[in-house]
């Protein structure tokens, strides 16, 4: 089997999962598809190095996260930011309460990536640190802050999850 065939086999098997991860990061299926395609292209170009890694899926996730963060960084130069986010309205209107995915979207990109990797992909702290090229201590502290922020945003019935 050639390198290209090996790559295609891997990509077909994991493209859906990568797109799901991308969607959780960006909350936009079309952007998630673009990010996935870009990540797979980069994976293809570094395939020989990738196959030597311990965990090929994690390697692909790492590329995807970098593609996502790079995309946000490029966009941020043309976006205006506000210092204060609008107050969540879910506490008074249960039908409008934020979902977990909505709440995730309120986190900064890097913190969002940490939560997705830790609590959706079930990566260890060490592996998240490796994927994001951050110290373990930063992952731990940012995880705590992210969970605290999610607590603020989510409705009472979902807060039990953080007990």
């Amino acid at each position: 089997m050639t390198d290209d065939e090996q790559f295609a086999e891997f990509a077909h098997a994991h493209a859906e999962r990568l797109r799901t991860t991308a969607f959780m990061l960006c909350r936009d299926w079309h952007l998630a598809q673009d990010l996935t395609q870009t990540a797979l292209t980069k994976l293809f170009l570094s395939w020989r190095r990738a196959v030597q890694s311990d965990n090929l899926v994690a390697y692909a996730q790492k590329i995807l996260l970098r593609v996502f963060l790079d995309h946000r960084r490029r966009r941020s130069s043309s976006e205006s930011t506000t210092a204060v986010l609008p107050e969540p309205v879910h506490r008074d209107s249960p039908e409008l309460r934020l979902t977990m995915l909505d709440a995730l979207a309120h986190l900064p990109e890097r913190d969002r990536a940490i939560v997705v990797l830790r609590y959706f992909e079930d990566y260890s702290v060490d592996r998240v640190a490796d994927v994001l090229d951050l110290p373990v201590s930063v992952i731990k502290s940012q995880t705590r802050r992210s969970l605290a922020r999610l607590r603020e945003l989510l409705a009472e019935d979902q807060l039990a999850l953080f007990a």
Binding site: A8, H12, M24, W29, Q33, F44
Partner: peptide, 20 residues
């Protein structure tokens, strides 16, 4: 995520191969 209705995945693998 199960409540989401994602569009079809499409040929992202083929497109990635071509771009690559």
């Amino acid at each position: 995520l199960n409540n989401e209705r994602p569009p079809p995945l499409g040929d992202v693998v083929g497109a990635a191969l071509r771009d690559g």
